[in-house]
Nucleic acid binder design. Structure first.
Lengths: 227, 227
DNA sequence: CAAAAACCTGTCCACTTGGCCAGCTTTTTG
DNA sequence: CAAAAAGCTGGCCAAGTGGACAGGTTTTTG
């Protein structure tokens, strides 16, 4: 394999075409599925958006369902990457703060993924039942145990760890999923970095205060917080 | 009109048939649209669920879009019913507490409506742009003004009123919209009253604490709250 | 450089869909 | 009670769909 190919050209390697096309198709599919839903998104439209002939899409994905599942799997990988780190020996305030900020950041950087995931869950998670049961539930159990340990150690107010995580999830994802509503109400065309920072600060401060903690150094200084 | 009809039978009056069928169709449509999305829900399936011939559905709603919009309008009416009351002279803790509980209650009693509304917004609110801009935005402005007045009067910690309302919306609706995820993680088949009460207590306490308030009498007593 | 593997795509098709229509039955009205 | 209004529906159709496929080109390989 790694024979005489000058890696200089760097754009030629095994499966290069495949990888490139897969990426285009998956990206286009994500977009179309979010906009129109599973049934409403046509392979033709996905192909058009990817600037490929329809039959070429079918070359990579035998069926529409296969393509849809592939998109969902991408999302789950993305989720898992950002998910972990939450340990009993850490400081609750710091860890929760980082977790909240990371989720807000993720909503900002990958809104389509968040939206598609949300739509799938809303519709009853027909393709994600197994993921929820076999992956997410155990993950939750572990995280809940950590939070319970914190509570037991008196490091934070007693709260139901599950509902605390639901609160973090819902409040952070809201800005991605309900983007259209939020932006219309705030009379903006799109999110800006500064707004995202304010949101992260607000959510971190509010949620931590809600469980009797004080947020670490706010990333953007917001004077007049009184108290 | 109000002629000699004995109101006793009470099931016979002008438009009785119409009202009854409309109700059946709208209910069936709500269900199907949530399950399959706009494009995925077929008139045939809606008709089957309503136990009516397909052509009969078309008799009441010329097009699929008309039906869809009618369902959304029902939801908006429902929303508005529960929406109001939030006045500057009231006690913030009491009002916010009631508002949060009402939203949780609404998620519990009308999950389909919440889900459909969410899907519509996620997809960019193509049918609700006007509602968001012309109704919801002014409503928000008024509520934000009230909260700002509370802050100015020192009745609560200084927070951005818009994000506070987003926080309440997102955290409460989450239990309706993400029902499949929540129930799977909590290993339950469906919500029960007691769970709903706990959720309302948790959210009310957490969010109020987040803005420097203490929740009024908790509906279900939960001792050991320490502090 | 030739064989094999990977990749590509125009064309076709069976099937579902929303919607229309023409004529039917039931209910209301005066 | 008869005419009009309201309600009902089987059958039809054009448009769009996902997918199969056969025969093509390009790339890789030894």
């Amino acid at each position: 394999m790694a024979d005489n190919f000058a890696e200089t050209k760097r754009s030629y390697r095994r499966g290069k075409i495949r990888d490139q096309n897969l990426e285009r198709i998956l990206g286009a599919a994500r977009e179309e599925f979010v906009l129109k839903g599973f049934a409403g998104a046509s392979i033709q439209a996905i192909a058009d958006r990817a600037e490929l002939p329809k039959a070429n899409v079918h070359y990579y994905f035998k069926t529409k369902s296969n393509l849809y599942v592939a998109v969902l799997e991408e999302i789950i990988v993305l989720w898992n990457d950002y998910f972990d780190e939450l340990r009993a020996e850490d400081d609750p305030a710091e860890v929760l703060d980082r977790f909240i900020r990371r989720k807000v950041q993720l909503s900002y950087s990958h809104p389509q993924s968040s939206k598609l995931f949300a739509m799938e869950i809303i519709q009853g998670a027909p393709h994600l039942k197994d993921y929820l049961r076999n992956d997410l539930r155990p993950w939750m159990r572990k995280k809940a145990a950590v939070i319970e340990a914190w509570v037991a150690a008196g490091k934070m107010a007693p709260v139901d760890p599950y509902h605390l995580i639901f609160l973090i999830w819902s409040s952070t994802q809201h800005y991605a999923d309900f983007e259209a509503q939020v932006l219309t109400i705030l009379n903006r065309a799109e999110y800006e970095r500064s707004m995202i920072d304010r949101i992260a600060d607000f959510l971190s401060r509010s949620i931590l205060a809600g469980v009797g903690l004080e947020a670490p150094q706010p990333s953007a200084l917001v004077e007049g917080m009184g108290k």
